[in-house]
Amino acid sequence: MNLIDLYIQEVTRRLPIKSRQDIALELRSTIEDMLPEDYTEEDVTLVLKKLGNPAVLANGYMDRPMYLIGPKYYELYIQWFKWILPIAVTITLVGFFVGTIMAAPENQTLIIFVAKQAISEGIVQVLFTMFQVFFWLTLVFAVIERVDHKGHKPQGSCFKEWAPEDLKKITVLPKERAVPTMETVGRMIWTVIWVTVYFNADNILGIYKQGTEGMMSVTPSLNQDVLNANWLLVILAAILEIGLSIYKWKAKQWTIKLAWVNAISQIISLLLFTIIITSPNLFTSEYSSFLTNNLTFIHHPETFIIRIIIAVFLISIAADAYQGFKKAYFPVPTDNSHKKSGVGK
């Protein structure tokens, strides 16, 4: 095959079959028009150089875009990423923790097993989820880009053209008032972790001793039966915590109302926690004697520990509630400045 044939083939192989023959014929006649009577290979090279890259020429003949996601959908594409990625990662993490804790073998310390799994499996799962989100979202948008031929204006968040009314939906959020999405994600994961730990406390919390197969928990600190008896309170606390997280996330910013809801639910959590921690026989007798033997300088070590824990809890919720109100009272920028300068009406 000579250079001309090769060039024409390079162009037409990129085109739909039905238009190939016609374009090939026209291209050949054009190339021959451009060449002198007795042409050399050098002449051919010169002409082909003028016609340029066959891929570019072929693309000119086609209506479909030469990019994956164009300006019309790019913004929307990025927006959806920011939306879907944290949700997908949260679901993956929650699923991972629950699954791992369920699958934990009896003869291993749970916390070490979970930590090991998190390093070997958890990271892979999160990365896999991220790739999945990336792949499918890109695929969907690339298809939309090729199917949709209506207009060329960039799309707003709801696949509609932008209108000035959209501006009213924007809430101006100073950083000081905003509820970070990561906070919601972190809270939910935390809830799942402490609930799981709670119902497996006899495997996790205890006196650890160096055994032949690493750290072994020999003496559980807490009576699992006592803990289990309080299951309703725990579920209540978990629902309260998750509900509060979702509420915060939807509110997007701290308001006085949110600050109150936050403070009240924190107080309820404290009450539930206090009921559980002060239930009789919470500590195992082995652990009680262990405490009495080791903390001889304190009169009632159990009561002492319980008080300390409640105090810490109290301080932390007080700080949290205070932060809520502080953020809620942070001034929102208003458009007063315009009014004063007489720009507005």
């Binding site: 374009i23 291209l27 340029g52 020429l57 000119g60």
Partner: peptide, 9 residues
């Protein structure tokens, strides 16, 4: 030329 021929089509 890579613009012209596609344009004609």
């Amino acid at each position: 030329q890579s613009t012209l021929y596609p344009l004609l089509r």
